[in-house]
Amino acid sequence: MKTVLAASVLALTASGALAGKAFVSNERGNDITVIDTGSWEVIHTFAGGNRPRGITLSPDGSLLYVCASDDDLVRVFDTETYEEVYTLPSGPDPELFVIHPSGNPLYIANEDDNLVTVTDTEDHTILAEVPVGVEPEGMAISPDTNWVVNTSETTNMAHFISTEDYEIKHNILVDQRPRYAEYLDDGSRLFVSSEIGGTVSVIDIAGDGTPTLTQKIEFEVPGVLPEWLQPVGVKATSDGSRIFVALGPANRVAVIDGASLEVVEYIMVGQRVWQMAFTPGEEYLVTTNGNSNDVTVIDVAAEEAVRSIQVGQQPWGVAITPD
């Protein structure tokens, strides 16, 4: 893998004072690795609580939210000082969450309790608990903020929760073990990855938010057993032209053309790739590789892996500060 990544370090030399930070949650290491996205050097590591998984930032980039799964709460850190500023109630075993574009509230999947917990990030209170399917994981919010989508891994559904009354209005059955949900920026389409089913479901969204499953995208890599093509993280570019899908133990990220919905490239990355995040201009995509304990930096335009950076034990999620 190293030979692949040695290729073009050149592209990465453009740095500067404006470079951001990538925060990586290390599930087994119980810490957070901070990477400078200009130099791509690890600049800090700090304790992240027990079993840190889901990780996200406030819209202004000043606060880092971490699902400390085994602590049954969300830890909130200052992104400059790396000090923990407070914790938020999350319900038991928070795994993954999504933050409202305004910064409040936080919608949290409670993996052990079949709940989505809605937490007020200012009052530090729980606003609602929404019963969902078994083993809730993936979380997404529609760009118009009317809907929060949760995927439940054992129930195999995407649940569409109204942000107005926290009621589930629609359920869509997808393939086995749905892990992640990602809306296009214009809200017209939602992608849901199914890890064990090996597919990404394409769900078109009507003007009123009504979802319709229209297609399932499959993957195929010569020399890789179909069983190991396990879609997890999904990221779409803001113009919707490219959708990147992390394929877990296949150690590859698939690149899907947004118009044809066909896979146009498989990018080799580290081992057991799960979650991903773009740098602010979508120049780079950073992937967490749980088994090789590193992250891979993908040049988005070139659709190539350009660097890998060693982080902590079993990196799970990644969040990158905005401009």
């Binding site: 319709t212 499953l213 399932k216 499959e218 195929e220 899907i256 490239e265 498989y266 190539e304």
Partner: peptide, 19 residues
């Protein structure tokens, strides 16, 4: 890298919406 490219089967599926 390019040799890893494989055409993808985009499978049309029936509606499985929980109606």
């Amino acid at each position: 890298m390019r040799n890893l490219f494989a055409p993808l089967a985009a499978v049309a599926v029936g509606l499985t919406v929980a109606g």
